[in-house]
Nucleic acid binder design. Structure first.
Lengths: 341, 341
DNA sequence: TTATATTGGTTAAACGATTGAACAGATGAG
DNA sequence: CTCATCTGTTCAATCGTTTAACCAATATAA
C-alpha cells in the first residue's frame, strides 16, 4: 500500500545508468561532473521527488542539523516569543529546533540535556532554571564538543556566549520612575539571588535607592520563586509590617499579579496607596485592572540574537574563543498600577 | 581539546575482544549471547559511557523516534498545555518531539509538514490552522506511510484518528446557562465555519436556541478569526444593531476579551446589560475584571490522548484501520461575566 | 558411534549518502 | 610517438548499528 519507499540516490543512478556517487556529486555541484550530467540528475531528482535522507547525511557528516532549546517554561509569553524567534532564524539556515522545558526544575534540566545530547543536536540554546545551582550538567555539553548559548538567565561562570538585558539598568529605570511618583518606601520582591539576573536586579535596586537618597531596608527585600503564589505570599508578608511600603517592585510579572490580587482583596488602592511594578511585559499585565507597569525585555530580539550567536559559534566551531556577551537595553512600560497621575 | 569522540559499539568490542555484532546483540539481550558476555558488555558499556548513536540506529531501523507536532499558535495556553502533555507521554516511550507552529497560516502549515517529513519523523500530531481549507498537504503524510493524529481541530474528511471535545454539547451548556440568566437575545461570535469545531459550536448554538424556544437571528451570528482584534470588531458591529443582544457567546477567549474591552469602553455593564461567555479557559479569563465565563476543554487530557493514539497507530503500523475519534466532555466554568446574581 | 540439537558466537550485508583515490579516454606538449 | 594533463566517472571505504546467515564446538539422542 501507500508506504511508497522514498527515492534514493541509487534509484536516480539506476534510471540514468550512472553510479550513485556520480549522482551525489552532481547534486552537490562537484566540479568534476559534467554540466550535462548535472542537469540530467537534477531533473530526474525533481521528477522522482528525491529528498536526501537526513539520517544518512547526518550519520556520514557527523552533524544532525538539529538544535536543542531549553526553556524554564514554555507557557510564559516571554520564553515562547524567544523560542519562536530562535526557530525562525535557525529554520532559515536549514536547522530544525527541538524545544524542551525544564519547568524550573534542576532534575528536569539535567534530563533535558541528556536527551538532547543523545539526539545528537549540533548545539544547545538554554536558559537556566530557577532551581539550578550546580552547573556541571552544562559542562557536559561542551565536553561533547558542541556549542552552548545562554539567554536571559546566563551564568558568567560557564563562560559561554549569552544574551540578555541589562538588569541592573532595568532596576534603575523602575526606581527612578517610582521616585518620580513620590514613593519613598519601595519594597522588592526578587527572584533567587543565585541567578545572575535577579542578583543584578537587586543590586540595581539597592544602588538606585542610594542614588535617590532612600534608605535600604532589609525588611522590604524579599526573595522567592516569583510565581503568582509567591507574589501573594510576599505581599501578605509586606502588609503585616508596621510601616508598610508605598511601592512594590517585583522581579516578575506573575509575582506582581499575585501581589496585586492581595492588594485588591485588602481594599488597598493601587497605585494611590501602594504602587506596583512587574517585570517581563507578559500580555496579561495590560489586561488586568489596574494594568501593571512592567519592563519590556525585547524577547523577539533575544531569540534572534541567540540564534545568531549559535550560528557564529557553530560555523567557526571555534569553541575556544572568548565568550561573547550581548546586553540589550530594557524599556519601562508605564501603566496604571504605578501612575499616580 | 574536548571533542572527545563518543564511544561506539566497536570500541567496546575491541576492549572485550569480541565482534561489534556480539556487543549489539548483548545490549539488546539477544538469546544467543551468553549471560557472562552480556554482563561484561553491559559493564564496560557503562564504564565507557556508551550511548548508542541514534542517527545510525534510525538509519538502520528506518525510524527516527521523532514525532512532529503542529499547533496553530504555541503561545495560547490551550495549545501549549496540549503540547506539554504530548511531550510528557511520548518522552516516556522514548520519542522526542519536534514542535512547529503554523501561526494560523496555510502556507506555513504546508512548509511545516514538508520540514517534518524531511526530518523523517515517525508521525505527526496536528491541529489544523484557521486559514486552511485545502487538505492535500495532509494527505502527503499518509503517503509517506506515517500516522497522522489530529487534535482539537480535526477534519472528518481526512479519516484519521482524532481527539477533541464535544463542541456541540459545549454550546448547549453555554446557552442553557445564559437562558437561566434570563438572556433572550444571545449573539454568537464564531470561528470560520469550514473548521469542524466552529461549525459544530454554531450548530449546537442554533439547536440549543431552538430547544429553549428562542429565535435564531442571523444578524446575531458572526464569523471571524476569533482574535482579540476580531472580537473588538464583531462587538462593535453588534452594538450598532437597533436591537442589541443581551448576551454574547464567543467561540474563543481572545475574541471574548476583545468584546469585553469594547463593552467596558462603551460603559455597558457586564453581565447586567450584556452577559459574556468565551471558550477555552485561557488563564487571562480569570484575571480580567469582570472575569470571563468560559468552556474548559481539558487540554491536558487532549495531549495525553493524542499521544496515545499515535503510539497505538504506530505500534500496529496498521494505517488501514478505521480511524478512532475520541470526544471529551466539556465543562462550563461560570464566572462574573455571565453571573447575574 | 553417528546424526542432530544447542550454544555462543562470527561474517557480511545493509540502511543512504559522502568522498578521496583510482582509472579510462581524450587532448595536448615536446 | 610518448608522456603528461585534464575530464568525467567509478570504486571502495566510511559513518554506527542491526540482523540474517553461517560456523565451530559441545551436548543430546538414537
Amino acid at each position: 500500500m501507500a508506504n511508497k519507499k522514498n527515492t534514493t540516490i541509487k534509484d536516480i543512478a539506476n534510471v540514468l545508468g550512472i553510479t550513485p556517487s556520480a549522482v551525489s556529486k552532481a547534486l552537490s555541484d562537484h566540479p568534476r561532473i559534467s554540466v550535462k550530467t548535472k542537469e540530467a540528475v537534477r531533473e530526474t531528482a525533481k521528477k522522482m521527488d528525491y529528498r536526501p535522507n537526513r539520517l544518512a547525511v547526518s550519520l556520514r557528516k557527523g552533524k544532525s542539523n538539529l538544535v536543542g532549546v531549553i526553556v524554564p517554561r514554555a507557557k510564559s509569553n516571554f520564553f515562547s516569543s524567544i523560542v519562536e524567534n530562535i526557530e525562525k532564524s535557525l529554520n532559515q539556515e536549514g536547522y530544525n529546533v527541538i524545544i524542551t522545558q525544564s519547568n524550573e526544575s534542576y532534575k528536569k534540566e539535567c534530563s533535558n540535556i541528556d536527551a538532547l545530547l543523545q539526539i545528537q543536536v549540533d548545539g544547545i540554546i538554554a536558559s537556566i532554571s530557577n532551581d539550578t545551582t550546580d552547573l556541571n550538567h552544562y559542562k557536559k555539553i561542551e565536553q561533547n564538543g558542541i556549542p552552548l548559548i545562554m539567554f536571559d538567565r546566563g551564568m558568567k561562570e560557564l563562560e559561554v556566549d549569552s544574551v540578555g538585558i541589562n538588569d541592573y539598568l532595568s532596576s534603575h529605570l523602575v526606581i527612578e520612575h517610582l521616585t518620580k511618583q513620590s514613593c519613598k518606601r519601595i519594597a522588592h520582591i526578587g527572584g533567587y539571588s543565585h541567578i545572575r539576573i535577579y542578583k543584578n536586579r537587586l543590586k540595581g535596586y539597592k544602588n538606585a535607592l542610594k542614588k535617590y537618597n532612600l534608605p535600604i531596608l532589609e525588611e522590604l527585600i524579599l526573595e522567592g520563586d516569583l510565581t503568582k503564589q509567591d507574589g501573594r505570599k510576599k505581599m501578605t508578608q509586606l502588609l503585616k509590617l508596621t510601616k508598610r511600603p508605598d511601592a512594590v517592585y517585583a522581579s516578575g510579572d506573575y509575582a506582581a499579579l499575585g501581589a496585586l490580587q492581595v492588594l485588591l482583596e485588602n481594599n488597598i488602592r493601587v497605585p494611590e496607596d501602594i504602587a506596583l511594578v512587574g517585570f517581563s511585559n507578559e500580555p496579561f499585565t495590560s489586561l488586568v485592572t489596574p494594568s501593571i507597569t512592567t519592563v519590556n525585555q525585547h524577547s523577539e530580539k533575544i531569540g534572534q540574537i541567540a540564534a545568531e550567536l549559535f550560528l557564529k559559534k557553530n560555523l567557526k566551531s571555534d569553541l575556544e574563543k572568548a565568550p561573547e556577551y550581548v546586553v540589550l537595553e530594557p524599556e519601562l512600560i508605564i501603566r496604571e498600577s504605578s501612575k499616580r497621575q
